[in-house]
């Protein structure tokens, strides 16, 4: 007799537990305003990434096409996987001395792991995180970027 009742209580609790589950999905079905999905390509205009978002490494230039990079190469050594290459050039200073400056700051975005060690180690705060995240390209060579713009020079008051 005991097992006879158990048979029916089992059915009762089973049905009850199933209905509780159906209540959850049923509630979401009838409350479409709870949907959190972002309509991505449509909201491109309004989509704002967080200020600290690590999209890519960029080198900010001011309005005179000047940056803060001295070409010291600390970022190159800090990078764990060789995504940064610094090509230096020597120029003649007005006082006759030769000075090393940055020729090309090459950044391999395809190799970057976004660890942030280059930015943290930069002594002159020349490179920062950019918030651009749409990096998809058809040609992999486009992911190798030269961060200093052509013809740019260093801001005068930066000393090594």
């Amino acid at each position: 007799m005991n097992s006879f009742f158990k048979y029916f209580t089992d059915i009762f609790y089973a049905v009850k537990s199933l209905l509780t589950g159906m209540k959850v999905t049923g509630r979401y079905f009838f409350s479409p305003w709870e949907i959190v999905t972002q309509q991505y390509p449509e909201n491109r205009k309004t989509l704002k990434m967080y200020d600290r978002f690590k999209g890519e490494v960029i080198m900010p230039h001011n309005e005179h096409n000047e940056h803060r990079c001295t070409g010291c190469g600390i970022c190159e050594t800090a990078c764990p996987n060789g995504s940064i290459e610094i090509l230096q050039a020597k120029i003649d200073m007005p006082d006759g001395k030769k000075k090393r400056i940055i020729d090309k700051h090459i950044y391999h975005l395809d190799m970057c792991t976004f660890c942030g060690l280059c930015i943290k180690s930069c002594p002159s705060e020349a490179i920062v995180w950019g918030q651009e995240f749409e990096h998809a390209v058809f040609d992999r060579s486009k992911l190798t970027k030269i961060l200093n713009k052509p013809g740019s020079s260093i801001i005068k008051d930066i000393v090594e």
Binding site: Y50, R52, F53, K54, G116, L117
Partner: peptide, 19 residues
């Protein structure tokens, strides 16, 4: 993402503190 800039692989801690 708001605090450290990335969602999955953060590399937020450094020896001796935080990034």
């Amino acid at each position: 993402e708001e605090s450290f800039g990335s969602r999955l692989l953060h590399s937020y801690y450094t020896p001796g503190g935080l990034m």
